[in-house]
């Protein structure tokens, strides 16, 4: 309740800044979900491939590592939007 009262007491500019920070945090959270699902799927399939064909593990690991890094770039873009708008 105190938090709501504090929000209600904000002036126009403060309310705008608080709203921007909240939205940026929400956007960052959303931006992290997609890559999380992507990395889970990618690593799951890679583990399956390595368990079936251990002799190809080196090739699969290299591709998996690059895939993880590319997928993580999406989360980093969300993070950068967050720091540019929300901080």
């Amino acid at each position: 309740m105190e938090a709501l009262a504090a929000l209600a007491a904000l002036t126009g500019d403060e309310a705008k800044a608080a709203s921007a920070a909240g939205s940026a945090g929400f956007a960052y959270g959303l931006a992290a979900i997609g890559p999380g699902i992507g990395i889970g799927y990618l690593v799951g399939k890679s583990v399956e491939a390595m368990a079936r064909q251990p002799e190809a593990a080196g090739m699969v690991r290299t591709t998996m590592f690059l895939g993880i890094a590319f997928t993580e770039a999406l989360a980093l873009i969300g993070f950068v939007v967050f720091i540019l708008i929300g901080l």
């Binding site: 090739m59 690059l66 980093l76 950068v80 540019l84």
Partner: peptide
Amino acid sequence: ALGLTIIVTHLGLLVWEMRYVAASLAFPA
């Protein structure tokens, strides 16, 4: 500058590295 550096460095280095990665059984890295 910090935000742009993070995105540009991360993506730029990955794309650059792709040229030197060999996804083959003989040379896995």
